[in-house]
Amino acid sequence: MLSKLLSSQILIYNCILFFSFSLSVNYFVDFDILNYIAYVLFHLTLVYLIFYYFNFYLIFLSFLYGIFFDVFLINNISPHLISFLFFVVLFYFTKKYLLNLSSNKVFFLMIVITLIMFFSEAIFANLQFNYPINFENLFRLFVTTIILFFPSLLIFSKIDKL
């Protein structure tokens, strides 16, 4: 199990996760597109890992990243934690159905899950901590996701072949 966790692909994916997380929580005022790209990349990588490299350690990873995202971006714990754990556990219980889907359907599902994640985080932040739902931000995230989805999938498939 440990050797599986320490495989080169998983290590690279974890590096991507940590680097994109670090970029997301350090705001670059004059270059905020970088923050959007990193935030989207983190979510896409997590969703990709959930679909293709599901392991129980992912639940723990989602738990940790959920807490740190919440602490840095909201200063309270909840929206990211709930959203990440919900989707990881949802996959855990439905994987036997999801793994039968064609690759096109899986890609479509990944993009939809990523977008729902952004929206659910915004809704939780609004309901629990009174942060207004910023539709401009959400629109930027949606556009960045759509632009970034296929290039990142290409990179991921290259990593998979390592």
Binding site: S24, V25, Y27, N35, Y39, L73, N75, F129, N134, N137
Partner: peptide
């Protein structure tokens, strides 16, 4: 550093 991306302004 700044954490005022997305939600809180800190």
């Amino acid at each position: 550093s700044r954490n005022d991306f997305m939600y809180n302004k800190m």
